[in-house]
Simulated scan of single mutants.
Amino acid sequence: MYAKLEQRAFLAMLVLVSIVFAFLMQPFWAPIFWACAISVIFYPLNKRLLQRWPARRNITALVTLVLCVVLVVIPVLGVATSFVTEGVALFQKVQSGQVDPSSYVDKIRHAFPAVQSLADRFDVDLDNLKQQAVQALTGAGQFLAKRALAVGQNTFQFFLNLGLMLYLAFFLIRDGDAMVAMLIRALPLGDERERLLFSKFAEVTRATIKGNLLVAMTQGALGGLIFWILGIPGPLLWGVVMAVLSLIPAVGAGLIWLPVSLYLYAVGDVMEATVLLLFGVFVIGLVDNILRPVLVGRDTKLPDYVVLFSTLGGLAMFGITGFAVGPLLAALFVAFWQIFMREFSDEENRAPALSESSDE
């Protein structure tokens, strides 16, 4: 009796300490998550290096991390910096009156009279819609300006988080196998289940991050390229915006290139508008329709609609990190229920069979 009481008290304290530790780590959840993601994605590369130099775990982990910084971190920082710079410049032009977003809406309305009649039929106030569009663009510019100012003021915090992420990623890459084995030994879920869940975590993390980022970079690069060819101002800015929006399945970059093509039709640039529309449908859109199911849906083994809703939910809850966290949670949810149905359904099916055999 006393031994059971001690065991329950210890388990209660274990849960309490774990919860407090989780709250302690809460400010660093983003660096921790991305360190785990980096280690999962680059682990196969580190494993190949270890096959050549099995006694140099520190060196191979460091080489893997350096390649990660060169291939991923530095390009992302460069694109993000250029995006914020061009976004702030556009916001300043809107404030100074050099760019008038409402005039674009007016040109589209005058060029397409059917839009006005359709809006009247559904009681849509285009003037109010125009004001909301201007406010949204102004708000986006203000947000970018504030974020740029915040990054400038919190440069130390930003580089601290980046350093913590890379520091943790080094140890996860070097000692990942040992850490996973320790977790499998510690967690009370059953070794086979835990291996399945860790395998699912690695599989989905690689698929969502590599797949979504590859699709986003491809669509953003193609969108920025066609904007640059057609002479549309701010091709880098709009390319990055399309890359970010393409993280949302089924919607993506079309939120940018479609309105721009309509505007080009409205101002009489029929050739440019047609080229952009065809390029958006058959090139940018085809990338999403072909690459995303192959890179994301197939590896995660999730239906497209589950990927869509989990991505949107992840973005709403966790910000930009949610494009990876959302599908990951959905995949773990599905994995848990698959384990439950497999094991408990088998037990229920075996129970009647055993009772029938005992009656005989």
Rank of each mutant, 00 (worst) to 15 (best):
L214R: 15
N46M: 06
D100M: 12
E360C: 09
Y104E: 07
K107D: 02
I32S: 12
L245W: 07
A181T: 02
I38Y: 09
F336S: 15
I38C: 14
G231R: 12
A330M: 08
A3K: 15
L183H: 05
V334G: 01
S39E: 02
L137Q: 05
M271A: 15
A140C: 15
R292C: 03
A37C: 03
P188M: 01
P44S: 08
V244W: 05
G297M: 14
L258Q: 12
F158H: 07
V275C: 05
K93C: 13
A221H: 11
T81W: 12
F227H: 07
F112K: 01
Q157S: 14
R298T: 13
Q219T: 05
D269A: 15
F318E: 02
Q219F: 04
T300M: 10
I74D: 01
G224E: 06
A22I: 00
G223A: 14
F10H: 12
E203N: 12
S102N: 04
G211Y: 13
G268K: 07
E6Q: 13
D359W: 15
L295S: 07
G234K: 11
L71W: 11
V88P: 06
K93G: 03
L183Q: 09
Y263S: 02
I256Q: 06
L312G: 07
L67W: 00
I209W: 10
L65Q: 06
M25Q: 00
S355T: 13
N212K: 10
G297N: 14
V251W: 03
V134K: 10
A250R: 02
L49Y: 10
M317Q: 14
V84K: 13
M165S: 03
E203G: 15
M1R: 11
P101Q: 07
F171T: 00
L328C: 06
G211T: 08
T311F: 04
D175Q: 03
L49A: 09
A111L: 06
Q219R: 14
S39F: 02
I184D: 08
T60W: 07
R147E: 15
L196G: 08
L144S: 00
V267P: 12
T311V: 03
